[in-house]
């Protein structure tokens, strides 16, 4: 993976989107569905197509329960991992509904493994 401006933007966006969804979900108590919906609508309105898709995909990670993402720090890590997966799998299975969710699930599982290791 090349570290260029585009990839750095994707990683930043993924981290921000995951963390924001986590905060709306757990700290504001809106729940995962409303949190994801809000972030998705905002991303679709304020960002161009590809970036909105990245923000929405990353938002799925932030829907995880506190068992998986116990704090906003883990949400940041989850967003970072989601960003890496998005960058490296961009062209695979494009156009399949739920591909973003599968990406997010992979990121969430890796983050859970990390949080398990750190106790």
């Amino acid at each position: 993976m090349k570290i260029n401006k585009t990839n750095l933007r994707i990683l930043s966006l993924a981290i921000a989107s995951t963390s924001l969804t986590w905060i709306l979900n757990h700290q504001l108590g809106l729940g995962p569905i409303v949190a994801n919906g809000l972030v998705g609508v905002a991303a679709a309105i304020f960002m161009p197509g590809a970036l909105a898709g990245i923000a929405y995909t990353s938002s799925f990670v932030g829907m995880s329960s506190l068992t998986v993402l116990p704090s906003v720090l883990f949400a940041l890590v989850g967003g970072l991992i989601a960003g890496f997966i998005i960058i490296t799998t961009a062209e695979i299975y494009a156009g399949i509904g739920g591909k973003g969710g599968t990406t997010a699930a992979a990121a969430a599982l890796v983050t859970r493994a990390i949080s398990g290791l750190l106790g």
Binding site: S64, S65, G100, A107
Partner: peptide
Amino acid sequence: AGIGGRLGTIAAISC
């Protein structure tokens, strides 16, 4: 349960 992205995975498998 509780894994973010689980619902999307169900959707992808269905597709």
